[in-house]
Amino acid sequence: MTSTVVAPVTPAETTRGAEATPRRRGLTWLGLVPFGAYVVLFLAIPAVLAVASGFFDADGAFTLSNFSAYTNPAILNNFWSSLWISAVTSILGAVFGALICFALLGTKADRALRSTVDSASSVLAQFGGVMLAFAFIATIGAQGVLTKWLISLGLTTNVFNSFNGSGPLLYQVPGLVIPYLYFQVPLMVLTFMPAMEGLKSTWAEANATLGGTRFTYWTRIGMPILAPAFFGSLILLFANSFSSYATAAALISQGGIIPLAIRQQLTSETIVGVANVAGVLALGMVVVMIVLMSVYTALQRRASRWRR
């Protein structure tokens, strides 16, 4: 790809004259500076500061003592909650999203149905955040439509307004699963649909010619081929749920998942002398994300084999 684009550039530069080229190169190089400086100042430095701050104490001396946060049962509990919420919402989201993709198989990409599903998916996948929290407060919150409906049916204490003996489900960590699914499923549709569309009709025909049924097609051809793409999307969903903050922040005022634990640390850090635990927690999140992204790239490489 790169070489084909480079090729036409060279003859034009030679026509410009031998001595003009180096000078121009010198000037055009400066064109990369503003963006480079911006990325260094607002991406590289913050990212390094975030991770590195965990290694320093309040006086700026190097220390590993902040890592003792990971022996704190409350922090470990938050980490565990983050992981299982991400696992549950990514598995459920991936399965339901894949089902929707399956239902869309065979529909034309330019028809109204597909363009509606595509637009709706991209809006809803972006819908995470405060407004999503409001939507579910209005649906299954204490005064929510479904909650009130269940009460009107005679279920005055139902799963939505009294979960686990500690108030409405929505304001507890397990309750996050429901709003999270609301952006996980659309994200799955967006990321998995291209792989689903990559299934060639000739494979279904070959299966039929050889006497296969719909069942053998899916178990022996469809699922094995789609597996890397499916697990790749699943990991993307896991990462998406793991790093999401705003929805949980609007619903839960205490800790509960690791981004909320970082909030607690950051808001209490206004007291001088408190160690940089937030940096250590941020490092923990980054480590999880790096592992996820490495597996994701490996799976993407496998998935793209069939798309050549």
């Binding site: 607002f42 991406l43 430095i45 913050p46 990212a47 390094v48 500061l49 975030a50 991770v51 701050s53 990462a239 793991f242 790093s243 999401s244 903050y245 981004p259 970082i262 909030r263 950051l266 937030a278 940096g279 941020a282 999140m285 980054v286 994300m289 790096i290 992204m293």
Partner: peptide, 11 residues
């Protein structure tokens, strides 16, 4: 790939 909440710690 970097969660906003992590960037915030650096911001």
């Amino acid at each position: 790939t970097i969660p906003s909440i992590v960037l915030v710690v650096g911001f």
